[in-house]
């Protein structure tokens, strides 16, 4: 495993790019000796984080930018997504009750929950106009 490498991509805020984003993550992660389960979980976590930025930070407006950086240091893979849209308040987040959501025909809200399950640590921060989600997974 390489001691410290990183990779980044800038994409516009459109779900059209989801596949490209997943391919970017896959290409980077495949360079590391990872089991397929970890690979799938990291790809899904990035997909969910990117989708949340499109929907919530940018309100589905495709004319914005999302920066995605991926890196590995010793035994931890990290991913950072940055946007300049609305800030996500992680303190107000409540884990979803699936049964209640089904009864109320609600969808969404599952992405953050999934990210928390898939990754070992998740941090949200804001500096100036930039919001960042930093996710880490021990590999």
């Amino acid at each position: 495993m390489k001691a410290s490498t990183s990779h980044s991509i800038n994409v516009s805020s459109s779900t059209e790019n989801l596949r490209e984003v997943r391919n970017f993550v896959q290409k980077f992660v495949q360079q590391i000796d990872l089991n397929n389960n970890d690979l799938d979980e990291i790809i899904l976590a990035v997909d969910e984080a990117y989708t949340n930025i499109i929907k919530h930070a940018y309100n589905n407006d495709p004319n914005h930018n999302v920066k995605i950086e991926l890196g590995i240091s010793t035994d931890t893979l990290w991913v950072r997504l940055s946007d300049t849209g609305s800030h996500f308040n992680a303190d107000e987040y409540q884990p979803p009750d699936l049964l209640k959501r089904i009864k109320n025909k609600q969808r969404g809200g599952m992405g953050v929950y999934l990210i928390n399950k898939l990754m070992d640590s998740v941090e949200y921060s804001s500096a100036g106009k930039t919001n960042t989600i930093l996710m880490r997974k021990r590999v």
């Binding site: 989708t51 959501r101 025909k105 609600q106 599952m110 999934l114």
Partner: peptide
Amino acid sequence: IASAGLGVFMA
């Protein structure tokens, strides 16, 4: 499948 896909089943 991502959660947006599961959301359709939920809805």
